[in-house]
Design a protein around this nucleic acid. Structure first.
Length: 261
DNA sequence: CGGAGCCCCTGTAAGC
DNA sequence: TGCTTACAGGGGCTCC
């Protein structure tokens, strides 16, 4: 999500008010069957707003919205930043924006102006302490699962979930309703601070992520557990461990983050 | 409801 | 130098 927020902050001032002069697409699953109609629908419309909804980027135009999800390797690049797997090219009056996606786990789809699109949980940056506590109390699953589930909470991805749980000293497999009250409060604080710090750093670039000008973020340099298996915990020097939780690589300190009981 | 397993793709790095 | 396997910032599906 910090990567998406970084993109939205770069896109909005540059695109709002510009008219789409031409749209080109190449055959790809990112369009989910809409490829034939996308160019015809969008050409000629003006960008009214660029917003983030969880990890989605929403372009609001005169008569439609466009929902862009970057998946694992999606990029939005302003020419002349180099694209290797261009799926859509949006030609504006003053800019050429390319949706590039190696693995095609991303998507670019047309939505009506009102309604439609996914209904997700509250935004991780905006949720209140009370709502966050209630969410964790009512769920039975592992806390990592709850944080990652976009229908529970929108915006948290794998990197930031591991980092936030580390900061709050919570084991990723701990059932969310069993997390002690004071750790829930600590997690609420650390999660939002972490996301803000990552946004300020332009997001994390592990291998693929770059911003609209092809620039990498720098927050990967401040990861404390993500990808750090085998290296000493910054707090207690115990080796960071990697396990699999809900099919995702999960990194934590076995000493700082204990399962209760 | 929750969790496991598998799938969608391409590229890279590590292991033999 | 090869070939094979594991794994990757996400999410959707079925099955039990």
């Amino acid at each position: 999500m910090p990567e998406v927020e970084t993109l939205v902050r770069l896109l909005a001032p540059r695109l709002v008010g510009q008219r789409l002069l031409n749209v080109m697409t190449t055959p790809s699953r990112v369009f989910r069957g809409q490829q034939p109609v996308i160019a015809a629908c969008l050409t000629g419309q003006r960008i009214q707003a660029v917003e983030r909804y969880g990890k989605n980027i929403l372009l609001r135009l005169d008569h439609h919205r466009v929902r862009i999800h970057l998946g694992m390797t999606g990029k939005l690049l302003f020419a002349p930043a180099p694209a290797t797997h261009p799926r859509a090219m949006l030609a504006f009056e003053d800019d050429l924006l390319v949706f590039d996606d190696i693995r095609q786990f991303g998507r670019l789809e047309l939505l009506p102006l009102e309604e439609g699109g996914p209904a997700l949980g509250e935004d991780a940056l905006a949720i209140s302490p009370a709502a966050f506590t209630a969410l964790l109390r009512e769920r039975r699953g592992a806390i990592k699962n709850v944080l990652l589930n976009q229908h529970c909470l929108r915006g948290m991805g794998n990197i930031y979930t591991d980092e936030a749980l580390y900061r709050a000293r919570i084991h990723p497999q701990c059932p969310s309703f069993l997390v002690p009250r004071r750790k829930v409060a600590a997690l609420h604080v650390s999660m939002r601070a972490l996301l803000q710090e990552a946004i300020a750093a332009g997001g994390s670039s592990i291998s693929d992520y770059v911003d609209t000008d092809g620039q990498r973020g720098s927050f990967q340099n401040r990861h404390e557990v993500y990808g750090k298996q085998g290296t000493p915990c910054p707090r207690c020097r115990t080796a960071i461990r990697r396990i699999v939780v809900c099919q995702r690589g999960t990194h934590y300190c076995p000493r700082c983050q204990r399962l209760p009981r």
